[in-house]
Design a protein around this nucleic acid. Structure first.
Lengths: 206, 206
DNA sequence: GCGACGATGGCACGCGGTGTCATCGTCTGA
DNA sequence: TCAGACGATGACACCGCGTGCCATCGTCGC
């Protein structure tokens, strides 16, 4: 511990994250082993897994904080109004970042969008959001005397999916600006319906 | 090869699938190793991976056939009309099963819905459907002079997500009847919008 | 009867993820 | 100042998934 102490001002976790982001971009997620990542980050292999339960988790940020904020945001939503709209608003709120964070966020999201293994992992990581949103929608819809199990599940799954769509579009556009307009556009699409030219009718099929 | 020959009237692939379904339901996906599954199915471990590239793939049926049918269905879609509606119709068509298949399909879908590892795998397996649907939507929307990259991506991602929602609801209801009404309900939701009481307005947010 | 060929399975390897234990620096109380 | 507690670390061993390689065997055509 003689030299290298000042390097550790950046905590171990941050160092691992940075090493992963860098190396994944340069050589591809599947082409780098955890052993190598650990060496690059100056850490033992075992320590890597202490900070991130899976290799893929090093790319996803602090989702636990986000989930807590999401719950809180939904709990604070006014009693009236459409459940799906509340969920969309909460998702937008949770996905607020400072300008300095845009660049890193874009790198994360681009990796997630491009690497199949990370997309698969995203399904796991985002499932809690789906669950929370679905529970919220079920309760609120029941209070309004409407809704069904399918409706509640749809609100959770489709809203979260819309966020992913929004981020993909944001990344494809360079990911330099605030991503929220993209998320909002995707959420508006899921709230208002995919049918072109505005709400053409729920009976669009057949 | 003395005895056991008649058992092999069911092809190796089918035998492995059956063994997996059975054992996963009984003991849980993560609790059974491929080695054990191979023994149960009466094949070598190596043979298992020759038939299914991953342990999780034994639960998903013949998706390649479905994907081909999906492409064909979209190609045959009439020139006019809403792209998302065409996609929804094609998805419904591709998910047509005979009555005798309902039971097995329900068992598969229940496993997929309940096991996180299988949900994650579903994201990989269904990504080709997303891609095909998005490409279709992009081209058709461009031909209509409308649409955007985000719109096309949304059509693919959200439509496929709606199918998953529909299957979840179907499974939750027992999975005894035709699943298509559930898929149709979920697809109608994504086509017409999540906002309760019908299309209330695309500007629902804020 | 003899190669060709496809299906099979054994073997070894790399890698992801986990449990266990030893080590080391720091912090605290005597 | 020293002893012990505690958290962070890392070394090691282990299991399971997935893959490449090669030997084997049954079948088919010649």
């Amino acid at each position: 511990m003689s030299s290298g102490w000042d390097d550790r001002i950046k905590s171990t976790r941050t160092r691992i994250e940075a090493a992963c982001l860098e190396t994944f971009e340069a050589r591809g997620f599947d082409q780098v082993s955890v052993e190598e990542l650990a060496i690059i980050a100056g850490v033992g292999r075992r320590t890597f897994f202490r900070y991130f339960p899976a290799k893929a988790d090093a790319v996803f940020g602090e989702l636990d904080d986000q989930l807590a904020r999401f719950r809180a945001e939904l709990a604070d939503a006014p009693a009236g109004g459409d459940p799906a709209v509340h969920v969309a608003a909460a998702l937008l709120c949770v996905n607020s970042y400072r300008n300095e964070e845009f660049a890193t966020l874009a790198r994360r999201m681009e990796l997630i969008a491009r690497v199949p293994a990370l997309q698969a992992h995203a399904a796991r990581r985002f499932s809690s959001f789906r669950q929370v949103a679905s529970d919220f929608a079920r309760q609120r819809a029941a209070a309004l005397g409407t809704g069904s199990a399918l409706y509640a599940a749809a609100v959770g799954t489709l809203s979260v999916a819309a966020v992913e769509v929004g981020y993909d579009a944001w990344v494809a556009d360079g990911g330099a600006s605030d991503p929220r307009p993209y998320l909002r556009a995707a959420l508006d699409l899921v709230l208002g319906g995919l049918v072109l030219g505005g709400p053409g009718g729920v009976r669009a099929l057949g």
